[in-house]
Simulated assay, not measured.
Amino acid sequence: MAEPTSPPTGYRVLLPSDWIQVPLRHGDTEETVRSIVSSAFARVPADAPRDKLTPFRLELERRLRAAVAEARKAKALELYLPMRLSGDVNLGASIIVSEALLPARTGSDGAASQAADPAEIAVQLLSRGAGDIDVSSGEVDGALAVRRERVAPAAAGQGVESASRRVDYFVSVPGDPGRWFVAAFSTIGAGDPRDDLADAMVEWFDALMTTFRWSWT
Rank of each mutant, 00 (worst) to 15 (best):
A67K: 15
P49Q: 07
A93C: 07
I95S: 00
V167F: 00
V171Y: 04
D18L: 12
A40L: 15
L197Q: 10
F181I: 03
V13S: 02
L208N: 10
L64K: 07
I188S: 04
R165D: 00
Y11G: 02
K75P: 03
A48R: 06
S94K: 15
A66C: 13
K52G: 12
T210S: 15
A76K: 04
R25Y: 02
P153V: 12
A156C: 09
D134P: 06
V89R: 05
E70T: 14
R179A: 12
V146F: 01
F41Q: 11
E61H: 14
L101V: 14
G159D: 10
G27L: 04
V202P: 02
R57T: 12
T54G: 01
D51V: 11
I133H: 02
W180F: 15
E139T: 07
G27D: 06
P103Q: 09
L15G: 06
Y80M: 14
Q21D: 09
D134Y: 13
S172F: 00
T217G: 13
P193N: 03
G10C: 04
Y80N: 07
I36T: 13
A163I: 09
D88I: 00
K75G: 03
D18Y: 15
M1H: 12
A116S: 15
M83A: 14
R165C: 01
A40K: 13
